[in-house]
């Protein structure tokens, strides 16, 4: 009898934990959406005009949002990132000009990002997003230190042919200020081979920790929608090296 009661208590407890976990997990994107709708409410409170949610005007509003965001990018000698999901391109944007374009060979977009209506799209993507955290397995500046030869004989002995360019598997992870996680990966080595996967796995473990903490403390779990793009490693290396440590990012999609 006592055993049955204990089993029942444990069972109910486990069900409760499962329920809380499930609720946290299911509600997380909805909380994120509410968060993303805040600029709309703020704008309504100030009686400012905001794009209407009508399907016939949706693509036009998105085109406008892209141009507005591009024009808002600072022109002070800095390179920015433009992700155009509509034509599958990753672009470097500098002083109002696209200076480099790489084709994305595979794209995965989080369902929350995919399904945004015109108003929320405008709220999130009509401005350039700031990068709040970045990590990559690419060396930003591949500096080689050389001690100057003291004599010409020493110089002649140290002359070597330049190395041919070696590109390691590339992985770039940028966390944007609206919570979007932008992941750029080498097309031949998903998540940038061993070193890239290590970085990504560390991020995923951190996220699991955050989720567990939110379950234990009954606090809100922050959902982080992802945009995953694959491209050639040479192109990704060039893009990552060109960008500042925390670049501004513009994303466009239909």
């Amino acid at each position: 009898m006592k055993h049955k009661r204990t089993a029942l208590v444990v069972g109910v407890g486990l069900c409760l934990i499962l329920l809380v976990t499930l609720a946290q997990w299911v509600m997380a994107p909805i909380h994120k959406l509410n968060d993303w709708e805040k600029p709309i409410e703020a704008s309504r409170a100030k009686n400012e005009p905001w794009p209407v949610n009508t399907a016939p005007l949706d693509s036009l509003q998105r085109e406008l949002a892209l141009r507005k965001a591009l024009l808002e990018l600072p022109k002070k000698d800095s390179i920015h990132l433009l992700i155009n999901l509509a034509d599958s391109s990753i672009n470097l944007f500098m002083n109002g000009l696209t200076i480099y374009q790489a084709k994305a060979t595979a794209i995965e977009v989080d369902p929350l990002i995919k399904r945004l209506n015109t108003s929320v799209y405008w709220a999130q993507w009509s401005i350039p997003r700031k990068t709040v955290f970045s990590q990559a397995n690419i060396v930003k500046e591949p500096v080689i230190e050389k001690v100057a030869p003291k004599t010409q004989e020493e110089f002649l002995a140290s002359v070597t042919s330049p190395d041919s360019l070696i590109y390691d598997p590339a992985f770039v992870h940028l966390a944007l200020d609206n919570g979007t996680q932008l992941i750029l990966s080498d097309e031949a080595n998903k998540f940038g081979g061993r070193t890239g996967r290590k970085l990504y796995s560390a991020y995923r473990w951190r996220r699991r920790g955050v989720f567990l903490k939110s379950v234990i403390t009954f606090s809100q779990y922050t959902y982080e929608p992802k945009v995953y793009l694959e491209a050639e490693n040479k192109a990704l290396t060039a893009i990552y090296r060109a960008l500042p440590e925390q670049p501004k990012v513009v994303i466009y999609y239909r």
Binding site: L22, L33, P111, R115, N117
Partner: peptide
């Protein structure tokens, strides 16, 4: 459940806009 929740949460309400307003916009 999560994709379902996303799908339900993102169902957007579109205000009734007349053809003339739509054209003007």
């Amino acid at each position: 459940l999560q994709p379902l929740a996303i799908a339900l949460a993102t169902i957007s309400w579109s205000p009734g806009v007349s053809d003339s307003t739509l054209m003007a916009l």
